[in-house]
Structures are given as structure tokens and as C-alpha cells.
Computed example of a mutant assay.
Amino acid sequence: MVAFYALVHKDDDSAFGVSFPDLPNVFSAADDEDTVVANAIEALELWAEDQPIPVPSTLESLRERKDVREALEEGAFLVRVPLVEHEGRVVRANVTFEAGLLRAIDETARRRGISRAAFLASAARKALGT
């Protein structure tokens, strides 16, 4: 899976700002730290819909960049943001679960009015973003 590093900036009186050193036109923001990566994933996915995807820089090469070093010195921090590409096609998968866990998944999906597959896809997207 392709992933890009993002710089997260936070001033005392502002939301979290997210920028991608490899992708100068991609930005995101989040009101709290728990949603930084999820919002960054969404920004990255939206950008990738219309752009060729470059090879991401390594963590080591980013740390050598003057602009990244300066941002880190000013209090920013780096997070790894996975790019989950939407191919537009659905693939069937056979998975195995412990019976009690599967029952809990089905009950939760039913309460939410969604299918088991939709619930599992949602949970996977959430897990990839943390």
C-alpha cells in the first residue's frame, strides 16, 4: 500500500493543519487530534482521483529536507497517511471469524441498517486511518 508522510501543524489557537511535503497542493485540517489522520486520508484520496501518484519520499529523505526540518523544529510532527485507492470494482473475499465476533458484527451492522460487508469495509477504513 502506498503511503505519504504528512506534516501536522498546531498553533495554540487553531485547528490541526496537515500538509504533504511530497504533494504541495494537498492540505487538510482537523479540530482534534483523533481525526487528523482520517481527514488526511480523505484529502489524499480526493487528490489521487485526478492525479498520477508519485513515488513517496522515504522518512529519511524527508528529514533531510530543509523545509521539513524547519517545520519539525517549529513543533510540527510527521504522520504516515495510507492512500487507499478506489478502483471502482468490488472483489468477493472469503474470511473466517470466531462465531461470537461474527454475531456481534452482524448485530451491529443490522442496528446501523447496513450489510456485513459495508460494516467490515467501514471498520477496515477506520483501522487503516489510525
Rank of each mutant, 00 (worst) to 15 (best):
42 E>V: 10
122 S>T: 15
101 L>N: 04
123 A>W: 01
57 S>T: 13
125 R>S: 14
129 G>M: 10
71 A>M: 03
100 G>R: 00
64 E>F: 10
69 R>Q: 13
15 A>S: 04
89 R>S: 15
43 A>I: 00
7 L>H: 01
6 A>D: 07
61 S>Y: 14
126 K>W: 07
58 T>A: 09
56 P>R: 10
76 A>N: 02
106 D>H: 09
117 A>R: 05
67 D>R: 04
113 G>S: 07
50 D>Q: 12
31 D>Q: 00
92 R>K: 03
85 E>T: 14
84 V>K: 09
18 V>L: 01
61 S>M: 08
13 D>F: 06
23 L>Q: 08
41 I>D: 12
101 L>I: 02
76 A>G: 02
12 D>Y: 00
67 D>E: 10
119 F>V: 10
90 V>H: 12
107 E>M: 09
108 T>Y: 11
45 E>C: 11
92 R>F: 01
43 A>S: 03
93 A>G: 00
73 E>A: 07
81 V>F: 12
42 E>G: 06
63 R>D: 10
78 L>M: 09
87 E>M: 10
96 T>D: 07
54 P>C: 07
65 R>W: 04
65 R>M: 02
25 N>C: 14
49 E>K: 08
91 V>I: 10
65 R>D: 06
86 H>Y: 15
60 E>M: 11
43 A>C: 00
93 A>T: 11
76 A>T: 00
130 T>P: 05
114 I>K: 03
92 R>E: 08
45 E>Q: 14
25 N>L: 15
37 V>D: 01
29 A>C: 00
38 A>Y: 09
89 R>Y: 15
63 R>S: 06
72 L>A: 03
97 F>I: 03
77 F>Y: 14
126 K>Q: 13
75 G>Q: 06
41 I>V: 15
84 V>G: 10
76 A>Q: 01
38 A>D: 08
36 V>H: 01
56 P>F: 09
51 Q>E: 13
21 P>T: 12
9 H>M: 00
65 R>K: 04
96 T>G: 12
73 E>T: 02
18 V>I: 11
5 Y>P: 04
59 L>W: 13
77 F>S: 06
57 S>K: 13
117 A>W: 05
110 R>M: 11
12 D>H: 00
